[in-house]
Simulated assay, not measured.
Amino acid sequence: MSTKEKQMNMSQMIGKVRITRIQEMSGAGFPFELMYPKYSLEEINKHRNWMTPNYMTADTDQMFQSQSSWIIETPETTIFVDPGNGNDKVRPGMDRFSNLQTNYLDKIARAGINLEDIDIVLCTHFHSDHFGWCTRLVDGKFVPTFPNAKYLFSQTDFDWCENMDPATEGKIVDGGRRIECEKGMLPGITAATKPAVEDSLLPILESGHLTLIPQEDMKIDNFVTLINAAGHTPGTFRVDVESEGETAIISGDIMHHPIQVFNPDWNSIFCVIPEKAEQARRQLLKDCIEKNALLLPTHFNNPTSCRIKEVAKDSYDIVWDCL
């Protein structure tokens, strides 16, 4: 299959709207046992056959994950959602996201998108792997990657990041099997997010490209709506796309892994407000069923897109799609 054909297969039409997936990277992530406090080996074993090898490693029971961004082309607006980790960024405590050199910008170009054509950049939440490509390194300085775009980001998450204290952060111990937290902060998030704010957000704030928005539902145009889904972080949004009776939902980290479709009560260790995170996840699943929506999560590996079906009350299954 040619490069062009592969890239074409990364796009999906939702009525009059084209959504294109840009995959920055993929690979083994956290062990399930560490990622989910409600982890159950029995539950993992129930799904092991279909999860291996695309969604978990066969030998170490690690989550296999992707890092995806989404380009939404409506008849009115071109929108970029969750611009990944970025190159040349130092991320203490998150070595696999630090000092990357990926061909992410080449993938955007192969999708037929010029950086100058992006009208709006959206971020589902302020974890460093979701907004690193807001800037890129040019002549030793981080500048806006999408020079003509308006960046619409959560005021709530921005304030939350500003108040982070890396000194309160926990550590992963026991060979990666347990978290040790003195004051409740989760490992890696604060240490990685603070420099991300400095190299990826402050330059667009200072250049006048960044608009901080309140934590409430907001229409971007006649096809795209930001939906308040606070929980994973205080300022988490999801992005709903609707056109000609069809719906797609870009969910960010409301779910990190397909195992959470079968276990919606499984919050990750990075969910800041656990009760709200679970509520947002259950609402997402119900909305996917009610609208027969194409679900587009950030971290599901290949294939990433899926639809959700209800097999019993509060019990769900996955129907995989093409992206």
Rank of each mutant, 00 (worst) to 15 (best):
A109M: 09
F80D: 03
G84W: 00
C161L: 10
I179V: 14
H127Y: 10
E162L: 12
N85S: 14
C134S: 14
A167P: 01
H125I: 01
L105F: 06
D165G: 10
E116L: 07
F126C: 03
K171Y: 07
T135F: 04
Y151R: 04
I118H: 01
I113N: 13
S154H: 06
P144K: 10
C134R: 06
D157K: 10
L152C: 08
G93P: 09
T145V: 06
V121P: 02
I72Q: 01
M164H: 08
L137E: 05
N163C: 12
N85I: 04
N99Q: 15
D139A: 15
D106G: 15
D82M: 00
Y104G: 05
L137Y: 00
H127T: 11
I113Q: 13
G84F: 02
G112K: 12
I120F: 02
M164R: 13
G84M: 01
C134T: 09
V173Q: 08
D119Q: 05
V138M: 01
T156R: 14
I118L: 03
I172V: 13
D106I: 11
T74I: 11
R136M: 11
L105W: 07
G132L: 06
E162F: 01
G84S: 10
V81I: 14
G175S: 04
I120P: 03
G132I: 04
L105D: 09
L137A: 05
H127N: 08
R136W: 00
N85C: 10
I113Y: 11
M94P: 01
I120Y: 00
D88T: 06
T102I: 03
D106K: 15
K171S: 07
P92K: 03
F158D: 14
I113A: 13
F126T: 00
D159G: 09
V143N: 04
F80I: 01
P92E: 00
A149W: 01
T102N: 15
D174V: 03
E180C: 03
A149P: 01
R91N: 12
K89I: 01
A111T: 01
V143Y: 01
V138S: 03
G132H: 05
L137T: 06
N99T: 05
T78C: 12
N87V: 02
L152F: 09
K150G: 09
T77V: 13
P83K: 12
V138A: 03
R136N: 11
I120T: 12
A111G: 03
Y104P: 00
E182T: 06
G140M: 09
C123Q: 06
T124K: 04
I120M: 02
P144M: 11
Q101G: 08
D117H: 10
D157F: 09
E116A: 15
D119H: 11
Q101S: 15
G175F: 00
Q101R: 15
F97L: 08
F142Q: 05
R110C: 08
F142G: 00
T77A: 08
D129Q: 05
N87E: 07
E182M: 09
L100Q: 14
S154P: 05
G140P: 07
I72D: 01
H125P: 01
T135G: 09
R178T: 06
I108A: 13
I79P: 02
T78F: 06
H125T: 02
D95F: 11
S128D: 10
D129T: 04
R177I: 00
F131D: 00
S98C: 04
A149N: 07
M94H: 07
F158T: 05
R91H: 12
N148W: 08
F80A: 12
I71H: 03
N99E: 14
